[in-house]
Design a protein around this nucleic acid. Sequence first.
DNA 1: CGCGATTTTGAGAGCCGTCAAGATACGTGG
DNA 2: CCACGTATCTTGACGGCTCTCAAAATCGCG
Lengths: 249, 249
Amino acid sequence: MSKKNALQTVPCESCPLRKLDTLREFDEDELAFVKTFKHGELTIGPGAPIVMEESNSPHLYTVLQGLAFRYKTLPDGRRQILNYAMPGDLVGLQSSVFDAMNHGVEALTDMLLCVFPRDRLWSLYTKRPSLAFDVTWLAAREEQLLDEHLLTVGRRTALERVAFVIWHLYRRGRSVGLVTANKIVLPLTQQHLADTLGLSLVHTNKTLKKLRATGCIAWADRVLEIRDQDKLLEIAQMEDTEEARRPFI
Amino acid sequence: MSKKNALQTVPCESCPLRKLDTLREFDEDELAFVKTFKHGELTIGPGAPIVMEESNSPHLYTVLQGLAFRYKTLPDGRRQILNYAMPGDLVGLQSSVFDAMNHGVEALTDMLLCVFPRDRLWSLYTKRPSLAFDVTWLAAREEQLLDEHLLTVGRRTALERVAFVIWHLYRRGRSVGLVTANKIVLPLTQQHLADTLGLSLVHTNKTLKKLRATGCIAWADRVLEIRDQDKLLEIAQMEDTEEARRPFI
DNA sequence: CGCGATTTTGAGAGCCGTCAAGATACGTGG
DNA sequence: CCACGTATCTTGACGGCTCTCAAAATCGCG
């Protein structure tokens, strides 16, 4: 344990997340506690599993850098992507609260994760109720994102779905500083999009083409550009809502 | 407040939920706290809204009796049912953690709800960390259910979906004592099923007919009977997992 | 340059949605 | 007790959105 601490490259005081003004500040006590809570760091590359379906991870993570996705699969291999994890997001809470994961998480880019031991989550509840509340906040927000995603997959048309997921990723990326000049680097495959939206790869490709033809987006070489935000939102049947300031651990 | 307390018909000591052996016990301190946390009761009938989309409820509820559903709608009226609330489930956590709801909840039967004031949730975190942990547990479980639901709507076929939702409701009902002789009263309309599964009403009806034809279920007069559990599970592409013991507030 | 991964395009089938109408059930008022 | 209206369920016809199959084009990389 202490060895791992010695390997930490990013002390909590200079955690890159603290620079994001969408994330709330810690007070001194909270910062001190988080430092003792932090157990190490994990660096992994694209395609690497962070947690596996059906396995039982002893860790809880906060994303410091990079992008990952959460997914479930059926016995015959059909895959559904549930959500994406971006900087500031908590990964693996389910395994800390239950005993198993029931979903997998896989990295899309090089990632830097902050590692917490799950068996000390309880001490966070007894010693730092404000942070415990933040954990609940994060869980409730994940639930909210899933609600919206379920509405999309269940009730939106293919074109609306593609527009939705693009806007969703853009908006979340924007809130953590990943957007410059209406552009964001999205290392997603069309297969990922398809698995996110409950569509086939072929149909996703054709629908994406149609969306490009409207001129409201451009997407090539892993770079997504939003050219007409209002039109995109109209197609997706949604409204632009600025993200509230949010906590992180 | 004190007036409302006078109207309480069910003191916490004899809360009907405590009889369910799938729910965990309170210790004395927890019980004492919950008694002060409880603010009153709410009785409503079928079709009544418990919380409205886009509104901001000052309350948090625990279902004591009855069945409700959580949903979201698009501007043009398309509706997606997100989940069902059964005895022991917490309703309205999102509005306690954020400021708005973003989803509606509507009763399907006569319901009895235990009412908590949302502005006292914080005191639960500072005074009773074990209960705070339980709230997180419940939020994480809701997330788990949404994960499974999203996989279903995104990647299962119509027949698999119908089998899934039937099994899902049966299994959850079973864990709270609603099942007798493989039968459960389900006051759902086929429109509810359709909105749960992301299917049209007509196609849901035809798929349900096909499922009935396999002989593994019977459903008439709001009573669902499971006649061949193994076959149903096979059709739904899932496994029977017993629910773990769970907390409630 | 060659190979695997990804993207694109076309063709045809089929699952599922929409439209429409009839049947059944249920509650209400006469 | 019957008439009637509303909600729900059922069924058929038809269209189209989306899937699968298949192959070509493009890209990334050693």
